[in-house]
Simulated assay, not measured.
Amino acid sequence: MNPLAHFDPDDPYPESDGEPMAENTEQYEWLVKIKENLEILFAQDPQVFVAGDLFWYPVLDRRIAGPVAPDVMVAIGRPKGRRGCYKQWEEGGIAPQVVFEILSPANSLKEMADKLAYYDAYGIEEYYVYDPSANMLEIRLRQEGRLRRMSHLNGWISPRLGIRFALSGETLEIFDPQGQPFLTSVELAARLRDEAARAEQEHARAEQLAERLRALGFEP
């Protein structure tokens, strides 16, 4: 990984490399689902920053490192808000603790090895790599100063986020600490419509019961 690749002295910390966020629709759907559900999970905590496809510069000197844009990253202890990129020296020196990568056919073994080395060197605590086409999940946890691969994956609970991972025969499922599954925006909208319809039905039943009671001379 060449930290000076595409280096422009007039723009030493670019916010984009001109590449698409995702290589295909499945990768994009997973990226958005994980990012948005984490946003929902930590919506009430002003000190959890969640981002998708955002350049992370770990050190000031571009000759040393970076950047890399994780598919999804979580920085605990940093305030929410807009950023064009994540400059760690402006973020209290706090590295993102959790990173997710969603594989696509375009990801080479060298690219992923370089990313692992980068995340290992600059302080990531939890690293999740999911391959949707093969339905394979790789989990690495920082132990004794290194990102080490975990062997017991099914039912894994993130130490930092409290979310649970479950690999079925067909796909990966992720659950929040209350056991609610991560949903796509379409699934979430459908659930909200169902809940609104159920609430309306309950209200109608309550109104019918009240009418019957009034007809019998009782005031509900």
Results as ranks from 00 to 15, higher is better:
Leu153Asp: 02
Leu137Gln: 06
Val186Cys: 06
Asn135Asp: 08
Asn154Ala: 02
Leu172Gln: 01
Asp131Lys: 04
Phe175Thr: 02
Glu170Pro: 00
Glu138Ser: 13
Gln180Tyr: 10
Gly155Phe: 07
Gly145Thr: 09
Arg191Gln: 15
His152Asp: 09
Arg140Val: 04
Ala206Glu: 13
Gly179Gln: 03
Arg205Ile: 09
Ala166Asn: 14
Asp131Cys: 14
Pro159Asn: 04
Asp176Gly: 00
Ala190Ser: 09
Gly162Val: 06
Leu161Cys: 07
Tyr130Asn: 05
Glu187Tyr: 07
Leu137Arg: 03
Ala204Trp: 05
Tyr127Ile: 04
Pro181Trp: 08
Asn135Glu: 09
Ile124Tyr: 07
Phe182His: 11
Leu137Lys: 08
Ile124Phe: 08
Gln201Trp: 10
Thr184His: 09
Leu172Ile: 01
Ala199Leu: 10
Ala204Arg: 12
Ala197Lys: 12
Gly162Asn: 06
Gln201Val: 06
Leu141Glu: 04
Pro159Trp: 11
Arg146Gln: 11
Ser168Lys: 10
Ser185Met: 05
Ile174Arg: 02
Glu170Leu: 08
Ala166Lys: 15
Glu138His: 10
Pro181His: 07
Phe182Lys: 11
Arg205Tyr: 02
Glu125Tyr: 02
Arg198Thr: 12
Gln178Ser: 09
Glu202Cys: 05
Ala206Thr: 04
Thr171Asp: 12
Phe182Ala: 08
Ala206Lys: 10
Phe175Asn: 05
Ile139Trp: 05
Gln143Arg: 15
Leu172Gly: 01
Ile163Thr: 10
Arg160Gln: 13
Gln201Pro: 07
